[in-house]
Write a protein that binds this DNA or RNA. Sequence first.
DNA 1: AAATTTCTGATTTACGTACATCAAAAATTC
DNA 2: GAATTTTTGATGTACGTAAATCAGAAATTT
Lengths: 347, 347
Amino acid sequence: MRPTVHDIADTAGVSLATVDRVLNDRPGVRGVTKAKVEAAIASLGYVRDVAAANLAKSRVYPLVFILPAGDNPFMRGLEAEVRRAGFHSAAERTRLSVVPVSAFDATALVAAIDAAIAEQVSGIAAVAVDAPEVAAAIGRAHAAGIPFVTLVSDLANSGRDHFVGVDNVAAGRTAGSLMGRFLGNRPGPVAVLAGSMRVRDHRERLDGFLATIADMPVGRAVLPVLEGQDDPGLSLSLVAGCLESTPDLAGIYSLGAGNQGLVAALADRTDLCVIAHELTAQTRAALETGIIDAVLNQDAGHEVRSAIRVLRAKADGLPVIAAQERIRLDIFIKDNLPAGPDEDDNN
Amino acid sequence: MRPTVHDIADTAGVSLATVDRVLNDRPGVRGVTKAKVEAAIASLGYVRDVAAANLAKSRVYPLVFILPAGDNPFMRGLEAEVRRAGFHSAAERTRLSVVPVSAFDATALVAAIDAAIAEQVSGIAAVAVDAPEVAAAIGRAHAAGIPFVTLVSDLANSGRDHFVGVDNVAAGRTAGSLMGRFLGNRPGPVAVLAGSMRVRDHRERLDGFLATIADMPVGRAVLPVLEGQDDPGLSLSLVAGCLESTPDLAGIYSLGAGNQGLVAALADRTDLCVIAHELTAQTRAALETGIIDAVLNQDAGHEVRSAIRVLRAKADGLPVIAAQERIRLDIFIKDNLPAGPDEDDNN
DNA sequence: AAATTTCTGATTTACGTACATCAAAAATTC
DNA sequence: GAATTTTTGATGTACGTAAATCAGAAATTT
């Protein structure tokens, strides 16, 4: 059996109370005694039984996820993952709640953050909107001692404790690299469909994409960015217009959430090289029919669980293992599509 | 606060002992009473506190991982992940151990399995070797009531409870698809470097690869398979010979663990399209220098944690959520390489 | 050396569940 | 209706840790 606090007390020749004081950094232990106890801990290889500790503490961690409302499939996927994680993490004394706010609305986001602060939650995760008042609100959370992580879209210099999401510049580079390889020496310009250039992650993806395309041995033109506001109708008409005005178009990089309109505009044209973001029902179907050639994905389940781990660690004053919390950028093509419509791995 | 057994007892109007009998399927409860209790459980939305339950049970789950010895980097990565998981899962009352057996040695594997059975472990995970005596040993484990999962390489019709690993036919298809897209209309045959055709996963990868290449609009020859036995020296000489005898070679698919020899043979030739399996220090370096164009990877950490979850579930007689235990096939190119040399996500 | 402060020990309760025992009550059988 | 069986209640202990109290010991100050 693994050693317990009793074993430590015995081998250190001190009482249980003293062991407890050392373990939980409570005052009233002489340096020598503390050293003795720590030696015993080390020699026995004691590790605290977190399950029992949490049981005894009977502390709960109310965490709030502030997510954009609306029909963005990726955001809805995130929400579903929060619910799923909440179901499993009840055992871990975490209570999760989702607060929807209207998309790209800084004022609404600020209000939601302040409400969470007032509720004295143990942690906040939010998809950041790039605005100074949001940074100020995050600062207030920080001042109140509430851990804050940005999700998917970051807001640096805001005092957030951590960012959970992919490296969007690398994502853009990956898209550019795949686009270049898939096209080979086939001529023709490529188009970029974005949501809005006012959003940080979209800008970063574009930067990475452009840089990689520029570095290619084969020179290739990139048309002016189409800003579809992640709206199906607008995206459709923009892409349709582009197809008409550019008959020799070779490829399209869709770096936002405008895939529904994109797919509709392409109808059954499988001759273009199309790379999109986020594996949703739409992009999955388009991959299977050949309309989309590759999908870059950030796993919503991983992101949610990472956010939870980080917030809990911060709430307990524990360190975060950065390497462990890095979110991978998945590449999906038709042949390595995961079977289910959605999945997950707890642990 | 979440409801406890006491709350159930109160609202059902029965004693705690009766609630316990219902919850743990102990005999001696009338149908009507049982229904009352179950109604209370449902209405309160009670979920058993697993942490407390495990604490009370103080049951431990000794699990054995039987892995091929030797310097196969992927297998060593698996072993490292088992150790890492063991560190974290001490809290979950799981005790992990690794038993190394000589690679591809059915007799050694059988002996290790029988030893684990004799030790009365709670579960066994093993990289299966395709031999009837191994199937028989798995059958003995099954007969002894010990859950058994095959890892990485499956052995169907052996009575194993579950397979943890990727769909290797799909992996081969993915490799073929990427190879075809990367090569475009560039002429020239492609070579395949395998470990051994006596191993099931290598055969399956080859099948998928050949099928996809055959389906391509551009006809492309595939040279006879080079069997390097996953040995660096042999792989090197085979690849070197192939390069010499086939000056117009367009690409190489390395579907086994012979990447060290492969990379050595290629020296600084970045003109070939090379696709390999498993992200190791070697393949990572070769990706960065451009010798390898894409790496297909199965995440060792995910696999180990999945195996643990499945074995524990089977040991407790709980169902396995298949969709949750599906292992993804990751595609890595230079641009979406994860930053660290290795990583992980608990939860 | 006495008074004070600082440590340490002993003990208890609690967390939520598992599991065992024994007595009491209810249902069943004869 | 008595005897028997089945069902239920009451109670206690255990798991490993947290947290509190209070008394006593050791160190420090005066």
